[in-house]
Design a protein around this nucleic acid. Structure first.
Lengths: 144, 144
DNA sequence: GGCAATTAAATTGTGTAAAATTTAATTGTT
DNA sequence: AACAATTAAATTTTACACAATTTAATTGCC
């Protein structure tokens, strides 16, 4: 071991990577009723706010490109949560909109954020710090 | 929008999820010389510390199960970084050890952590807080 | 010693991720 | 109007993730 900076326990990004995977694992039982994955849940969060959005705009909101979104949105369409339609104004654009089932899922999801927070043992203060630091990381990246 | 707790901007886990993906994207050019992905780099970090380890122990260290590790370790073996061998004492166990090429990669990697930190604009203080909070999240999970 | 229970990897199936390329539609410029 | 450049999705390829199942080896218990 020539170099302490290469020790796993000294890495900052490893806990980031591991905590993210454990977080999505914790979400899984909460999302079971909706029958969606965590990334699909993020799409629903956006659609519950906007109701109708292009794939491009979803990409900008979630930082997920069409290579990820296209098959994911097709799966969600198959499950009846949303509808994909080509824009009339610009045929290149695919717009995504919730179905009634997708809209109704919001009520089922209402308790998810609280349930998740209850499970977690971080303090309010720690959540605020965590979010502030991660958002700062993301802001830098958006700039570049 | 019936429920503010379902707003994307109010989620704590979304910045966690997004920052992790952006982090691995930032690592990619740094790992190019080694010709490994970020998860493969984590395996190398462990092996540079221990030289020889079972798949099971790797799982415990990285929280990645055999479904992920087996194909990943096979790819790394194909690229000549490590060798997989069945244990003589217990034929169920597969042990992973670095090749000379894998060992030599450590020298090439020596500058990676510093280069990554230089790119980032978080303060020393923020790094310490971030790591502390994420490690706390992970500790809870290990307990359960 | 025999055999059920346990354990370690591997396999299977589904679902992300993201780089790179392709296809099709639109826009800007001459 | 013509056509090169740009743009939005889709596709292709490679590589994770992880739940669930299978296979093979080992251990525990009678």
């Amino acid at each position: 071991m020539a170099n302490d900076s290469l020790k796993l326990d000294n890495q900052i990004c490893f806990p980031l990577y591991a905590a993210t995977r454990e977080m999505t694992k914790r979400y899984r039982p909460l999302l079971e009723e909706l029958n969606v994955t965590y990334p699909q849940y993020l799409v629903l969060l956006v659609l519950w706010e906007t109701d109708r959005i292009s794939v491009k705009a979803l990409d900008e909101r979630l930082f997920l490109d069409s290579g990820t979104l296209t098959p994911m949105l097709k799966r969600m369409e198959e499950r009846g949560l949303l509808k994909r339609t080509r824009s009339k104004q610009d045929e290149r654009v695919v717009e995504v909109a919730l179905t009634d089932k997708g809209k109704q899922a919001e009520a089922k999801a209402a308790q998810i954020p609280l349930k998740f927070l209850e499970q977690s043992q971080l303090s309010e203060e720690e959540f605020i710090q965590l979010k502030r630091i991660l958002t700062k990381m993301l802001d830098q990246i958006e700039e570049s």
